[in-house]
Amino acid sequence: MNPNNYLVLAAVLFTIGAYGVLVRRNAIIVFMSVEIMLNAANLAFVAAARNTGTLDGLIAAFFVMVVAAAEVVVGLAIIVTIFRTRRSASIDEASLMKY
């Protein structure tokens, strides 16, 4: 199959994810959108690895998965804590750390 199709799919997924990060307020949704972007990147890596026949892209994809897993653990814990203290998961309300 044409590798370009995988890349186009990855780009579409990445854009959906980025759009989600930028416009959604709910922290959980934002978080999911980030995951979509990571997976878009993974798809591109895997497709590239397949195309070139080397393992580099696969290794990178594994790295991303591990990092994403760790990130989910930490990120969700933070979101839960914020929700417990503020009764809200809106990221716009958690804007205390500014100038």
């Binding site: 980025a18 990060v21 990221i91 500014k98």
Partner: peptide, 15 residues
């Protein structure tokens, strides 16, 4: 003033 505390605006800047 650019440090306005909104994660989304930082994300936009990054993008």
């Amino acid at each position: 003033r650019l440090q306005n505390g909104y994660v989304r605006s930082y994300a936009l800047t990054m993008l």
